[in-house]
C-alpha cells in the first residue's frame, strides 16, 4: 500500500502531522508511517503510535547526529524508496524547510514549503502557502508521483492519544558522513512568549530610535494586557527583542483581538502576519504610510508623544 511518511526533527510538530495524517490516510487510502531519526529515536515509537502512526522507521545511525540536511535527505530518500512512500509530510521548521527541497530533488518530486493549510480535494492533496511576499495565497497541487509538503508548525492541532500499537522497522540505512561539519552551537536566550496565543499585541517597528525606548512600548502593552511583538530589524538585525517576537512572513502569524502597530510602515512581509487580528490599530508619524490602509483605526503622530499619552489615558479608565 502506498504510504504517507511523516518526519520532523521536532517531535511536537511531527505528532501534529501524524494527527492530521490520519485524515489523509483514509481519504487517500494510504497507510501512515513516520521516520524516527537520530539519537534516542527508538524510544519515541510508542508516542508516534499513540497519535496514529501505523509504522515507524527507526535509525540511530551516527551520520544522523547532529542534524544535517544532507544526511537527513538521504535517509528519508532511502526510506521513501524502499517502502513506497508517495507523500512526505514534513515540518516547515527551518531544518524541515531546507530538508524538504533536498529530498524532493532526490525523488525528482514537486515540493511545497511553508504550507499553512493542506487538504484533500477531488482525491488529491492541495496545499496553501503565501505568494508575492504575502500579498496572495497560492493553492497548489503537486503533479509528480511522489510529493513533498513541508507544513508550518501549529497548522494542525494535536489529536487525542489512543492505546494503539504499531510496527517498528529498522530503517537499515546506508549513509555517508555528511560534508558539513557542525563545530559549535550557541543557544539563543529563549523567551517564554507565545504571540500566537496572545489576546492583544503591541508591535513595534523601526520608528523606535533606540533599545532603551522599548520601555514606553512595554508600558502600553502592560495596560492593554498585551504582548510585545516587532518587525524584522528589531529582532534579527539589532537583537533588541528575541525572534520569538517577530511578526510576519518569516515570523509569527498572529490572531489577537487587538493588534497595535507602532512605528511600522506596513510592508507586506509584516502585514501578512497580522491579517488574522480582529481589530488593527496603527500609530505612525507619516500619514501616507501604507499601514493605515490596513488598519481599522489609525493615529497620525509621533510615537514618542502618542504612546505615553495613550498609556496614561488607558490607565485612567
Amino acid at each position: 500500500m502506498a504510504e504517507i511518511l511523516v518526519f520532523c526533527e521536532k517531535d511536537d510538530v511531527a505528532l501534529e502531522l501524524i494527527s492530521k495524517g490520519k485524515e489523509f490516510k483514509s481519504a487517500l487510502g494510504m497507510s501512515l508511517a513516520a521516520a524516527l531519526l537520530g539519537q534516542g529515536a527508538a524510544g519515541k515509537a510508542d508516542d508516534y503510535f499513540a497519535y496514529g502512526a501505523d509504522r515507524v522507521y527507526v535509525s540511530e545511525d551516527a551520520a544522523l547526529v547532529p542534524f544535517t540536511a544532507e544526511a537527513y535527505a538521504e535517509a528519508l530518500y532511502q526510506i521513501a524508496q524502499r517502502h513506497g512512500a508517495e507523500v512526505l509530510l514534513l515540518g516547515s521548521t527551518k531544518r524541515g524547510k531546507e530538508l524538504a527541497p533536498r529530498v524532493a530533488q532526490k525523488l525528482e518530486a514537486g515540493c511545497i514549503t511553508d504550507a499553512n493549510s493542506v487538504r484533500v480535494e477531488d482525491g488529491q492533496l492541495v496545499a496553501d502557502r503565501y505568494a508575492f511576499g504575502g500579498n496572495t495565497v497560492a493553492t497548489g497541487a503537486i503533479k509528480t508521483p511522489q510529493k513533498v509538503i513541508a507544513v508550518m508548525p501549529k497548522t494542525f492541532a494535536l489529536g487525542a492519544r489512543e492505546a494503539k500499537k504499531g510496527e517498528v522497522v529498522d530503517a537499515a540505512l546506508s549513509l555517508k558522513t555528511p560534508r558539513t561539519r557542525v563545530v559549535e552551537r550557541k543557544e539563543k536566550a529563549g523567551e517564554a512568549v507565545n504571540l500566537e496565543e496572545a489576546e492583544a499585541i503591541v508591535c513595534i517597528g523601526r520608528g523606535l530610535e533606540k533599545k532603551e525606548d522599548l520601555r514606553i512600548v512595554e508600558e502600553l502593552a502592560r495596560v492593554l494586557g498585551a504582548e510585545v511583538g516587532c518587525t524584522k530589524s528589531l529582532s534579527t538585525d539589532w537583537g533588541w527583542l528575541s525572534e520569538d517576537r517577530l511578526v510576519g512572513l518569516s515570523g509569527k502569524k498572529v490572531s489577537p483581538r487587538l493588534c497595535v502597530s507602532v512605528g511600522i510602515s506596513g510592508q507586506i512581509q509584516y502585514t501578512v502576519g497580522i491579517r488574522g487580528a480582529r481589530i488593527t490599530v496603527s500609530i505612525n508619524k507619516d500619514e501616507n504610510a501604507p499601514i493605515f490602509a490596513l488598519s481599522d483605526y489609525g493615529v497620525v503622530g509621533n510615537l514618542y508623544e502618542v504612546l505615553p499619552r495613550l498609556t496614561e489615558k488607558l490607565k485612567s479608565l
Binding site: 524532493a104 518530486a109 514537486g110 515540493c111 511545497i112 492541495v126 505568494a131 508575492f132 500579498n135 496572495t136 495565497v137 497560492a138 493553492t139 497548489g140 497541487a141 503537486i142 503533479k143 509528480t144 491579517r275 488593527t280 500619514e287 493605515f292 490602509a293 490596513l294 488598519s295 481599522d296 483605526y297 489609525g298 493615529v299 497620525v300 503622530g301 508623544e305 502618542v306 499619552r309 495613550l310 489615558k313
Partner: peptide, 27 residues
C-alpha cells in the same frame, strides 16, 4: 512539478478610520 490552482489575495476589509490633529482629542 507544482500546479498552481489559484493565487488570490485574501479578502480583508479594514475600516481605515484615521485620527489626526490635536493629540488629546485623537487619543
Amino acid at each position: 512539478a507544482v500546479e498552481v490552482l489559484s493565487n488570490l489575495a485574501p479578502e480583508t476589509a479594514r475600516k481605515q478610520v484615521v485620527f489626526k490633529g490635536e493629540l488629546d482629542e485623537v487619543i
